[in-house]
């Protein structure tokens, strides 16, 4: 870089980069005409769950598909990592991985479970919250490793049709987060009823000191909010991960194919890298953290004396 570039302020540099980026986009859009829109390519099929092994128990469709594979991978990886670390713990000198897992363990204990739950509740629910965090975390992170799972598009290598590499996550569909959310929801409702009795628990939904006239209204709102929690908790996780994958998919080539505009790839590919890093570094961990923290808050709230 030459001297004039170094002399610029950070803001000017950023503006210049953004301007150049925009100029390239416009130039590419004008200079290279579209080769015609591609209607055959359906990006959402990346997230379609084709049954690989069909298992049907009456009305229940337990077919093995891509999501089941990712679930199994996430569970296996979580268990393997934690068992490996647990067995290594006897050694006095921890290695890096062990230090990282110990950090996440103390993070779960002191940052997620600790602030919301009292000692007894924390002891009782630590394993649940910790497993939730680790399981979701591993699922999310696994979602950014390309694996040969796209059976719709295959690559022919020496006569064998190898599935194309694709990214997917167990948490990128509604079912997995919803199942976890339902477990959380029932857990804290049952814990609340156990702590205060059924009527006492329902009564605790109304904040103390509410005027008598307002109580039915607040109770109704609280009932709605309790059920909205099922949706908010599951959709927050699933939509974040799905949106991340969609963004990477579109920027990493989906738009090029869809618009029939190969040159636009020059612009979108750097964005794809940026989105990828953003998702891996921030969103994967943040969503697992939010899910586990909300679980801890709900659990703590359900047994708390006043709401």
């Amino acid at each position: 870089m030459t001297a004039w570039w170094k002399g610029l302020k950070t803001r000017s540099k950023l503006l210049l980069i953004a301007g150049a980026f925009l100029a390239i986009t416009v130039f590419v859009g004008i200079a290279f005409p579209s080769a015609g829109r591609n209607n055959a390519f359906k990006p959402q099929n990346e997230f379609k769950l084709d049954p690989w092994v069909s298992i049907k128990l009456g009305p229940l469709d337990l077919s093995i598909n891509k999501a089941v594979l990712y679930l199994a991978l996430a569970a296996t990886l979580t268990i393997a990592t934690m068992l490996y670390i647990a067995n290594r713990m006897k050694q006095a000198h921890p290695n890096r991985m062990q230090t990282a897992v110990e950090l996440s363990y103390t993070f779960i204990r002191d940052q997620i479970a600790g602030p919301s739950l009292d000692r007894r509740m924390a002891q009782k629910w630590f394993a649940f919250i910790g497993t939730l965090f680790l399981f979701i975390w591993f699922s999310n992170l696994l979602g950014y490793i390309p694996l040969p799972t796209n059976t719709e598009e295959t690559v022919n290598i020496f006569g064998i049709n190898v599935p194309a590499f694709a990214i997917y996550a167990a948490t990128a569909n509604l079912s997995a987060p919803l199942a976890l959310t339902l477990v959380v929801w029932f857990s804290y409702q049952i814990e609340g009823v156990r702590a205060k009795g059924f009527l006492g628990y329902l009564r605790s939904w109304i904040p103390a000191g509410t005027p008598r006239a307002m109580r039915p209204l607040l109770f109704a709102i609280e009932v709605i909010s309790q059920f909205v929690r099922i949706i908010s908790l599951s959709v927050r996780l699933f939509a974040n991960i799905l949106a991340g994958h969609l963004l990477i998919l579109f920027m990493g080539g989906g738009l090029v194919v869809l618009l029939g505009l190969a040159a636009i790839g020059v612009v979108t590919l750097p964005l794809a890298v940026i989105f990828f890093l953003f998702e891996v570094v921030l969103i994967a961990t943040l969503q697992a953290f939010i899910f586990a923290t909300l679980t801890a808050i709900y659990l703590g709230e359900s047994v708390a004396e006043s709401h």
Binding site: L60, V68, A179
Partner: peptide, 11 residues
């Protein structure tokens, strides 16, 4: 997908 939810619970 109910089946996937069951798988999730199992995992």
């Amino acid at each position: 997908n109910l089946g996937l939810m069951v798988w999730t619970l199992i995992a």
